[in-house]
Simulated scan of single mutants.
Amino acid sequence: MRAPQFWRTDGVASRLLSPFGFLYGALARGRLARETPRAALPTIVIGGLTAGGDGKTPLVIALAQMLAAQGERPALLTRGYGKRGGRCEPFAVSSGDVAAEVGDEAVLLSRHALAIVGADRAASAALARELDATLLILDDGFHSRRLSPDLSLLAIDSDYGAGNGCCLPAGPLRAPLDAQIAAADALILIGAGATGRMLAASCAKPVFQARIVPEPQSAKALAGSRIIGFAGIGRTEKFFKSLAETGAEVAATRAFPDHHRYGECDLTELTALARWHDATLVTTEKDAVRLPPAFPAETMPISLTFAEPEALTAMLDAALSRARLSRAS
């Protein structure tokens, strides 16, 4: 889906939908408060404050890389949103799997660590242990609360913040703001926007500043070239802004809904647009895995970097130590 513009403001549409938002929020608050089983492995749970675009996937990948550098073997647990087919869950994603079968995020995650797809998080956790993982990172497991977290991190887009502050469908929040903040051990503030900074400053929680950066070699290759950016992610405007910051001439952009399945009409339209502008098509890694291998589009990879990685590493180490000590006792 594409986030409606009224999610940013307290307008008529939001007010008309507010009863439904109140009901959704009450149910979501209950899920956040419920007791859940604990996995045999230390469990880090990631959430996004709103319904898509906060930066959960880059955060999961960045954490997996940090922990792998410390000798850990993280398993990344995901539901495989958008997958088709009847494969028996849970299963580990392999190099030959495609987005249509396992989900685009699952393919992307599997390039960085062991990725396991399954709606039953307890079963996925058990499989991770069988495959010699040393810890779990749950991609978007914050709100479902299927496993008890040893550490809960909440990603916040600093430009978007909490939107209009209402729960779905009246606004973008996946649970009431106070309930989400209370359930988080720390906030990961992504970007330098004032909206997110003000929100984080009002919360009595540790805050870690991060930012999305293009992969240097890819960004350098785009500089000075004429391009057309297209994407089907939570907030396409962030990707288009990153493209402009590479120094490329962005002749046009095309936004699709999050997790969009590109059909022949879409591909024909994009190809015609590129010819019309005499430009190169450029998209995200997440979109690239949903495209036919032969489709002529360049990819601009991005990564998440932390302002104070040592402080975050110290928090991760402390949380993992507590988790292992509690399981040993």
Rank of each mutant, 00 (worst) to 15 (best):
A231M: 06
C167K: 11
P74L: 01
T313P: 02
A162G: 11
V282M: 00
R174E: 10
R235D: 09
L304D: 08
A183G: 04
G191T: 03
I44V: 14
G55D: 12
C166H: 15
Q209I: 03
A123N: 13
A13G: 07
A314Y: 04
R79F: 04
H260I: 04
E249V: 13
R327M: 04
P293E: 10
G47C: 07
P301Q: 01
Y24H: 14
G118H: 07
S225P: 10
S321E: 14
L138I: 05
S329C: 08
I181H: 13
G229W: 00
L189V: 03
E105N: 12
I156R: 05
W7D: 08
E72V: 04
L270G: 02
M66Y: 01
A123T: 08
E308C: 07
P4L: 12
A248V: 05
V107D: 08
P74V: 02
A13S: 14
G118S: 09
A92D: 04
A28G: 10
G247W: 00
L127K: 03
L27S: 12
E310M: 02
D185W: 01
V12Q: 15
G96I: 11
R211H: 13
G52K: 12
L154D: 02
M300H: 03
A69C: 03
S144Q: 14
P19K: 06
F142I: 09
V107G: 09
R129W: 03
G55H: 10
T305M: 01
R322M: 09
L138D: 11
R146I: 00
G11R: 05
G21T: 05
T236D: 15
L109P: 08
C167Q: 10
H277V: 00
K286R: 08
P169S: 13
S14T: 09
A92R: 14
R235Y: 10
S326Q: 12
A219C: 09
T57R: 07
L77V: 11
L187K: 04
G47P: 10
W276T: 13
V98G: 14
R31L: 05
A248D: 07
R8A: 14
Y262A: 10
G48R: 06
L114K: 13
G161Q: 06
A252H: 11
R79K: 13
A288M: 00
G161I: 03
K56G: 13
A294E: 15
Q65P: 07
A62V: 05
